[in-house]
Every structure is written in C-alpha cells, then in structure tokens.
Design a protein around this nucleic acid. Structure first.
Length: 484
DNA sequence: GTAGGGTTAG
C-alpha cells in the first residue's frame, strides 16, 4: 500500500465485498495509510469516519495512529490531539507511537511547549517510557530553536535512561549546528559519533556539506564531497542540490551548471529543488533567457513547479526589471493554489513598488484582502515602502497605524522603512516619536538608516539634540566596530 | 500483514 497503489487497494476491497469476505481492521488500516501516503487526507478522514459510523470495524491503536499521522502531516495537530482523547474515551490505549507522532508534529510546528506538555503526560500520567525516537523529535525541536542547553539536558536524560543516541540523533545535531553556521561544532559531533561506533551516512554528510555551502566555503564543501565518495558513500540529489545552491549563491553559475551536468551524467534525476535552485542562480546573474529555457526543460522533464519555484521565478522576474512578465504570469496562474500564498503577494507588491507602479501595488494589496488572505509584517512593510517611495507619506502613516489595529504590529524593518521615507521626503513631524517607540521596543536602526540620520543632522536639516536618542539605537554590530 | 524520528530551493 506504501507503493502508491490505493486504487488497487480499493479494487481489492470491492473484491472482498463481492465474495462476502469481511475486510478486517488490518485491511482498512492499510487502505487508510495508502490514502495518507498519497496526501489524500480528506478521503482518509471520510473513510475513517465512515468506518466508525457504519461500524464496519472497530479501529485499533494502529488505525488511530495512522489517522493521527495523516492529520499531523497536514498540520492539524488539534484534531490529532482530539483523536488521542477519543482513543482514551473508547478504551483504546494510546501507545508510544501515538504520543511520538503528535510530539514530533508539535516540534515541527514550533510548538515546543505543547510538545513537552504531551511528553510529560505520556511519561508521568501514562507511565509510557520514551524511546530514542521520542527523544530525537524533542532534541530536534529544541535545536531548531537554538535551545542548545535544553537539548543537551535531554541528551543527558537519554544517557541516564540508558538510551543511546543513534545516527539520526547525531545527524539532527549536525544539521542544527550547520544551520547556525557552526560547522566546527558539527564536525565535532561527527567525530563523537564515530568514537561511539556510529557510522555517519549520506544524510549526515549532506547536512555538513550544506553547512559549508551556506557559509560560502565551497572548497571545503567540495573536499567533504570528495572524501565522502572515497568512503563509498554515493552522493544523491540532495548532495548535489546543496552544492548547486552554494555555487549559485556565490554567483559561480558556471560551476553550478557544470555540477548540474555532472549529476545527470551520473544518472541522478534533477528534481524540483534542483531546477528551482538553478533558476534562482540564473536570475541572480541576470540570465533571464537561460532561466526561461530551463523552466521549459523542467516542464519537459515532468518536474512540476511548486509554490517555491513560483515564488523564485516571480522574484527573479521582478528583480530583472520584468515586473510586467511577473504580473502576466501571476494572472495566467489565476485562482490556483499557487496564488493563495501571501509570499507571492509580498514579492509582487515589492516588485511593483520598486518600479514606481504604486497603483498596481494597491490593487494587489486590495486583491489579497478580498481573497481572505492575511497580510503579514512583510506585506505591510513593502506596501509602506511603496508609498514612501512615491512620497505618499500620509498613506504610509495610515497603513503603519493600521498594523497595530490588525494585530500585526510593525517590526524593526517597518520602522526603518517608514523613517527612511520620512527623511528622504524631509518630513520630520513624527520622527522623534517613532525613534522613541523603537527604543522602547528594543529595536535598533540599521547602518544605512543611521547614516541617513547623520547626514540630515550634518547639513542642519535635523537638530543635533536628536543624537542622544540615536545613540540608543545604534546597532550592536556598529558598537563593536572600532572604525565607528 | 497495518503505526512514530534525521538532509536540499523563498
């Protein structure tokens, strides 16, 4: 059933009914799992409800777990948790799998506190002992938050419980360190795991390679890539995708194209991520025609662009003075799910604003509201930036004030954008008040906004008395900079 | 015979 053959599963089910063989809970569980694997969550829920309502079978713990897995996969932790309570009500004891599934999902959705609440319930109230999988989810969640102290506390707790970390535990640590740019620490983890007799695998090395790529240390990334091959580990699509991304971000598109070719020669099939990475690289160096060609090739190879691809293409077009093309693509896509993402609107509004098309930005902003989409801080900020650029400070201020009412308070970037707009238009009425608000919120001015203020003071447009307030808003990086 | 954890693109 895991082989994406739910159709055959249902055919088999029909067969059962015709021959008057009662399908049992095993068959229904497998069917349910098939639907979940194929992302057919609504059908899975319908099947599950139908089974209970029509008393076709009494769900057992495995079937509940399968349904819970499906709900978690679609971010519906609330219903997953409700199902866990239903199990208790129906005297079907939740197992360690039930708890671990939901704990993992909560961690992935950054709801660490809820995850730990459930963890505590599992251990203290239900007396279920956590295993290495439960710990891995929690440690992973803590690391992604940068809560290293608590993560190491969990590692110690594992040791006390005589549960050894496995390859996945160590890999999660390697990955978390790499994502924070701490590649040396990541390498130390790999050394520890080897000392403890655990063999790093392709996933472990992929994380490390990605870490070096993100730092732009491509020769080091390449070195690990080569050493990995020497150890008999075969680089996969993920390995290549990280390297491609690294080369593209370093604007070494030729090297990326060479690696792209190399991977196909080795029989690896470029996937959506590969194409999306290359598209971004090509746009970044302004090779829009080549990007278009690759986009067509992607289609021909049966790789369907997803939300991420779409966003990168729109952004690439906007940044290459092709806002019109971005807008036609947007209209071509129409009412599809691709256009139901706030990020898409943020990109287009930003693009329109940068090229002085404030009317289009306004229409886009109204359009997303009409669609029922929720503007986020970025949406408001790019819109405010549009208004400022056109000198429409009144509208900028109105929208800025609306942010608080809408439960989406401005962040440091919003303040900087508005202040830059005020200064560039020599409009100083609210400046002191805004600066004071920034101080109260613990924000700082970016280097460029700060130097804009200095310039205005130097030519006498702003009073020197403002320096005291500005002093509280100097970014930390500049404080440490001796040249400042 | 069915259920849970680690890697890539904004």
């Amino acid at each position: 059933m895991q082989l994406y053959r739910t159709k055959d599963g249902f055919a088999l089910l029909g067969c059962c009914f015709r021959r008057a063989i009662a399908p049992d809970v095993y068959i229904f569980s497998a069917l349910l799992d098939g639907l979940v694997v194929e992302d057919r969550i609504l059908e899975a829920e319908m099947l599950f409800k139908k089974l209970i309502k029509q008393k076709l079978c009494e769900p057992d713990v495995v079937m509940y777990n399968t349904m819970i897995k499906g709900l978690c996969k679609f971010g519906n932790n609330v219903t997953a948790l409700a199902l866990l309570r239903l199990m208790e009500q129906k005297n079907c004891k939740p197992s360690i799998v039930t708890y671990s599934t939901i704990i993992d999902s909560l961690c992935k959705d950054k709801m660490i506190d809820d995850a730990f609440k459930l963890f505590k319930e599992m251990v203290s109230d239900k007396g279920i002992l956590p295993d290495v999988i439960t710990y891995n989810s929690l440690i992973c969640g803590l690391c992604k938050f940068g809560h290293w102290d608590e993560a190491s506390k969990m590692l110690k707790e594992m040791a006390d419980e005589k549960i050894s970390p496995n390859v996945k535990t160590f890999t999660a640590l390697v990955d978390a360190f790499c994502k924070e740019g701490k590649v040396k620490e990541a390498e130390a983890v790999i050394n520890i795991m080897i000392e403890r007799g655990k063999v790093p695998n392709i996933v472990t090395y992929n994380s490390l390679i990605d870490g070096y790529c993100l730092r732009g240390e491509m020769s080091k990334a390449r070195e690990i890539f080569d050493s990995m091959t020497l150890r008999g580990l075969v680089p996969n699509v993920v390995t290549y995708n990280s390297l491609l991304n690294g080369y593209c971000k370093n604007l070494n598109i030729e090297k990326a194209e060479q690696m792209f070719h190399e991977m196909t020669v080795k029989g690896l099939k470029p996937n959506v991520v590969t194409y999306t990475t290359m598209l971004q690289g090509l746009f970044q160096v302004g090779r829009c025609v080549a990007a278009r060609k690759l986009f067509d090739e992607m289609h021909a190879q049966g790789q369907i662009p997803n939300e991420c691809t779409y966003g990168i293409v729109l952004d690439g077009l906007c940044n290459n003075h092709l806002v019109e093309d971005a807008l036609s693509l947007f209209h071509l896509v129409g009412n599809s799910k691709l256009n139901s993402n706030i990020v898409v609107y943020n990109i287009l509004i930003d693009g329109a604003g940068k090229y002085g098309k404030v009317d289009i930005a306004r229409v886009l902003f109204q359009g997303l509201i009409d669609k029922g989409l929720q503007p986020n801080v970025r949406t408001y900020t790019v819109m405010i930036s549009c208004f400022c650029q056109e000198g429409l400070l009144g509208e900028a201020k109105l929208l800025f004030l609306k942010m608080n009412e809408s439960g989406c308070p401005p962040n440091d970037v919003t303040y900087r954008v508005l202040l830059q707009g005020y200064l560039k238009n020599q409009h100083y009425d609210d400046v002191v008040m805004l600066l004071q608000e920034m101080v109260d919120r613990g924000y700082s001015l970016g280097a460029s906004t700060l130097s804009l203020f200095i310039d205005h003071i130097a030519v006498g447009l702003l009073d020197r008395s403002m320096l005291k307030l500005l002093g509280k808003l100097v970014p930390k990086e500049l404080m440490d900079d001796p040249s400042f």
